[in-house]
Structure formats: C-alpha cells, structure tokens
Amino acid sequence: MSHAPQTVSRAPVWFVPTSVAVAVLSIMLAVFIGVVDIPPADILAALQGHGSAEAKSIILDIRLPRILTGMLAGIHFAVAGLILQMITRNPLADPSIMGVSQGATLAVSLFLLLTVYIDNPGSNTLAELPIAWLPGVGAVGGLAAGAVIYLLAFRQNLGPLRITICGIAVGAVLHAVAIGLIAGWGSARIEILLEWLSGSLYARSWRHVMFLLPFTVVGLSLLPLLRRSLDLLRFDAPVARSFGLGYRFHFSLALALSCSLAASAVGVVGPIIFVGLIVPHLARLLAGRRFTLVLPLTITLGIVVVTLGDLAGRVLGQAEEVPIGVITAIFGVPVLIALLRRVP
C-alpha cells in the first residue's frame, strides 16, 4: 500500500480567518454606527477609557453590552439550532420546535402576571417591575419545557421523530396558554411582555452579558468533546449504536446542551426567530463537504446575523427602533426560501 488516501476534505486556509474577520467587522460596524452620531475618534477614546463622559456612557454602558448580548445570543441560537438539526435529522428543527421558546414565553407571562398580585404596590407599578428576573425566569421556563418534552419522548422510545412531534405539540399548548393569559389580562405590563416577545436587544446591559456568558463558555467548551458523538448522532439509531455509540446517553447530552443554550438566550433577548433555523443552513451551504467547518461558521454567522440585524433595526427605526426579532423574521423568510430552493 502506498499511503492512506486523504479521507477528510481540507478547507482552504483562508476560510476560517475570513469568517472571523467578517464577524469582527460586523461588531465594529455596530459599535461605530448608532442613533447618536459620535465621531470615530471619540469612540476609540471611549473604548480606551478616555473621552467625553457622554461618549463613554453611550459606548460602554449602552452599545457595547447590547452588542455583546446580541453576539452571545446569536451564538446560542445558531449552535442550538445546528445541534437540533443534526440529532433530530430534521432540517427544519430550531429551538422553537423543542418548545423552548414557548416554555420561556409562558414562564415570563406567568411571572409578570403573578407579580401583579403578589407585589401589589398600587398606583405606579411600572417603575418597580421585576425586569431583572426575566432572563432567569425565561431560561428556567424554556428548560422546563425542554425537560417535559424529553420525558414524554423518553417514556416511549426516544427517537428523533417522536421528540420533534412532542416538541411541536407541547410548544403549541404552552404557546396557546401564554397567549390566553396575555389576552385575558391586558395591563401596563403587557408592553414589557410584547417587547420581550418580539425578541429585542433594547436596553440590554452588562448584567445580561454576565448572565449569558457562563452558558456560552460551558456550552462552547463542551462542543469539542461532543464532536464525534454529534457526527454519529446524524445517523439512524441502529447505525450509530452499531458504530459503538451509547445512543441514548449522547442524544440526551446533546439535547440538554442545545436546550440550555437556547433557553438562556430566549430568557435574555426573547425568541429571536429564524436565527437557529437559518444560520446552520447558511453555514452548511458555505462549508459544502468540508464538514469540520460547519460549526465554526455557525458560530461566526450567528454573531454576524444578530449583530447586523440589530444594527439594521437601530438605524432603520432611529428613535423608534425595530426589534431584532422583527428584522430576522422579515429577512429570514426570503433567505429561507432561497435556501430551500437549493436543497434538492
């Protein structure tokens, strides 16, 4: 035998650096462009801790945490979608299919409703709304929904199709209950809820960044460990098991990771739809057969899509900004249709 044939397609060297550069560029654009015009020199000074108090406040307290929150949320949604699409072998899987978004929605609605009665201070409630709790409540609700679906599917034979159907069914019920609550209630709090529901990065602060960051760090550092099991989970269970994979354990692990990433992001920014669905498809389209590239591209594209989407929302709406969730929905549909046309 001469030498082992190359069985892994190598990517061009420039591919990953370019995608990272595009991500960095989009972040820089988002830092430098905004509703308030600040000269680039002032922005650079503010970033280094000098400059006017106004510029410092806008850049360091408003723009930067907002961009970072969006970046992390983009990574969460995109990676969660990629994992779900791989392990359920369903190209249309995304966090909303697993009931995560709906679970978070219901939890946040319930929470806001209940705090009216528990903590009833009378006239002016708006200032005291427990907004700080929303990320945690949403994340817990999303995870709880994921767990319910998992248990439903687990009692039967845990299979990709069953878990998808359970996810859609439970998601629909949770969504209906949440909408019922919102419709039957109608108070000042509905505005907070609507803003959260449309998926928004408005007024996201360092607190939100710090809420997301542990999930991001743990999630992304687990990915290299899951690399081979994710590869095998793309096969039917009997095939994956024949290759030597403990299917149920690894399927559950990947699902738990995906749900945690999605639930934490939904809790912080609300359900930004289509990111989890479209970004993995874009990444696969760009990567082609170079499968090792799909994950890094999913991460960088998740950053780019959310960052630029939010920038577009800020610039287009000026003072009345358009929520990122609306932007991704509007631009997501044509992209999705275009992608579907390329799929045989």
Partner: peptide, 25 residues
C-alpha cells in the same frame, strides 16, 4: 460490526467520512 438493511446517511457525507465513522469503536 452490524450492517442493517438499507441504512441512511446524512446527505452531504462523503464515502471517506462514512468509512471513518467505522473507526469510532
């Protein structure tokens, strides 16, 4: 090693990538 009837693989997988999975054990 067990080869089921009519197994299915992800669309974009190459022959080399499939055979590589055989080494997972």
């Amino acid at each position: 090693a067990f080869l089921p009837q009519q197994p299915s693989a992800p669309d974009e997988m190459t022959v080399g990538q499939l055979v590589r999975q055989g080494r997972f054990a």
